[in-house]
């Protein structure tokens, strides 16, 4: 028998539509109500299995071609002011060369010490890639966008029960796009979107308690897996778990580390403060 008092709220809870206080009330109820707790578990599994993987039907090819022709025929206009921080072609090429070198060094080092796959990491990585694709395609809109990392941190402070530290690197190579409260393998997380040299990178911030349930070993610090062409890096730092998805190995490190920084295998820069 489902507890009718909070059934509607449970769906709002799962949709990420409750305030922090309301979420706390629902979570308190879940701890004492096995029926509602079971509903949440199965609903999350249902969403992870089906709903989170739904995509819009592809537009018919003939329609797509006509839309492209229509868009090409639109009159050209200029926006003002132009968006700051865009690199010139030479700048992009130089950055890419530096990133490939940096990525190679870090990626190889991590793989050297990581001993084989782990089912929890694979599951988390697959879920992260699914979410990353949705974020990159605009299927999951950001709850907060066009904001600074500090403003986003402040916004999340009132929305989630765990600390969200967002690296605030001032780099022309990297743009913080925004964030949203999301779900990964049935766990509430904060999903952050970045553009790193015209590539999308997603960083998922996972509460420590939930990260520990994955049962991952502490060493090596970084677990790197390749899933469906994406590089996924999973790690824990100062009481928070992270999963980072990128299309090109090594580039995601720029989310937390500037190009000039000397990277180590277990870094603890200021951006990882607890």
């Amino acid at each position: 028998m489902i507890c009718k008092v909070t059934r509607a709220e449970i769906f709002q809870y799962l949709d990420g539509e409750l305030s922090r206080r309301e979420r706390a009330q629902v979570e308190a109820h879940l701890r004492s109500c096995p029926d509602c707790s079971r509903l949440v578990t199965t609903e999350r599994a249902f969403r992870a299995t089906y709903l989170d993987r739904l995509r819009p039907d592809p537009v018919p090819e003939n329609v797509r071609e006509r839309v492209i022709r229509l868009l090409d025929a639109l009159p050209s206009r200029q926006s003002s002011p132009s968006r700051p921080g865009r690199l010139g072609r030479l700048g992009v090429m130089a950055a890419m060369v530096a990133l490939v070198i940096l990525g190679g060094i870090l990626g190889l080092s991590v793989r050297d010490v990581w001993k084989g796959p782990n089912a929890s990491v694979i599951q988390l990585a697959d879920a992260s890639v699914d979410q990353h694709q949705k974020l990159a395609r605009g299927l999951l809109p950001f709850d907060i966008a066009m904001a600074s990392p500090r403003q986003a941190e402040e916004w999340f402070r009132s929305k989630v029960d765990f600390k969200v530290s967002i690296p605030d690197l001032r780099s022309e190579h990297l743009a913080f796009l925004g964030g949203r409260i999301s779900h990964l393998t049935g766990v509430d997380v904060v999903a952050l979107g970045y553009r790193v040299n015209d590539k999308n990178v997603s960083l998922f911030v996972i509460p420590e308690e939930q990260y520990r349930r994955l049962g991952l070993s502490e060493t090596p610090k970084f677990k790197v897996v390749n899933r469906r062409g994406y590089e996924v890096v999973v790690w824990r730092s100062h009481g928070t778990g992270y999963a980072l998805v990128s299309e090109i190995g090594g580039q995601p490190c720029l989310v937390c580390h500037s190009l000039e920084e000397k990277l180590e295998l277990t870094p603890a820069p200021a951006a990882h403060r607890s």
């Binding site: 995509r55 819009p56 039907d57 592809p58 537009v59 018919p60 329609v63 797509r64 839309v67 492209i68 868009l71 090409d72 639109l74 009159p75 050209s76 206009r77 200029q78 926006s79 132009s82 968006r83 865009r86 395609r137 605009g138 299927l139």
Partner: peptide, 21 residues
């Protein structure tokens, strides 16, 4: 920035969704 290019990118990224709706 060229507004048309930005608009084209936005539309193409959301085309399946727009046509579905």
């Amino acid at each position: 920035m060229d507004l048309r290019a930005e608009f084209q990118a936005v539309v193409m990224a959301n085309l399946d969704s727009l046509f579905g709706y």
